[in-house]
Design a protein around this nucleic acid. Structure first.
Lengths: 102, 102
DNA sequence: AAAACATATTGACATTTATCTATATGACGC
DNA sequence: GCGTCATATAGATAAATGTCAATATGTTTT
């Protein structure tokens, strides 16, 4: 996962509505109509948010009759999770100071 | 860490420049002048980005003479990391389908 | 085939964001 | 105190973002 892809994921998560959607979907598959009930937004706005979540790979969608069912993409989540774990382990307790700055 | 705080962190990471800064700082403390060398942006623009990274708690700053030295805040990173770990474990292999949608 | 339901797309608009130039503030050395 | 270096703030601006109303597309039911 390169920086551009990661930026897309972060951008997707940088909106309160989408963050809540991710949390809802993390508990199990949901259709748009169910998600919509939890928010004070219009259907087109939800559709816009779902597109962003799907495009960055965080959420998968599948048609089931008239409904579109959404669920979390665990693989992408794993990549994001491991990115933060790597950052954590990379940073050490004792700082390597930049003394010269020249 | 509530959703508003988390959104701030994600917003901070949703910019390629800031994502690179985080990676640089994760390897050790750096002053603004050193960071600036790696980018094609002006000094005020970097200052703007550093403020966003500090305000959300991802980066700490300390004055050292004329310089401001930046380093990663491991505590915040730990909170973000554990958030994603929680999301991962919350989502199960077998989907709890929403069959009614009524 | 028409009506009803679920979701997506389009176009408009206000707000936010990233960037710059110009200027201010703070620290150090002379 | 003055000049110089490091960083921050202010004001302006173009581009991106989140939202809506209106409309289109796709699916099911009658």
């Amino acid at each position: 996962m390169n920086n551009t892809d990661l930026t897309l994921v972060m951008k997707a998560l940088s909106d309160v509505t989408r963050l809540k959607i991710i949390e809802m979907v993390s508990e199990g598959e949901l259709c748009a109509c169910k998600i919509l009930e939890s928010f004070n937004i219009t259907q087109p706005t939800l559709s816009y948010h779902m597109k962003i979540l799907c495009d960055c790979g965080l959420v998968d969608s599948r048609r089931d009759g008239a409904w579109i069912r959404y669920n979390l993409n665990k693989q992408t989540l794993e990549l994001v999770s491991s990115y933060f774990n790597r950052l954590k382990t990379q940073s050490y307790e004792f700082k390597i100071e930049c003394l010269t700055c020249e």
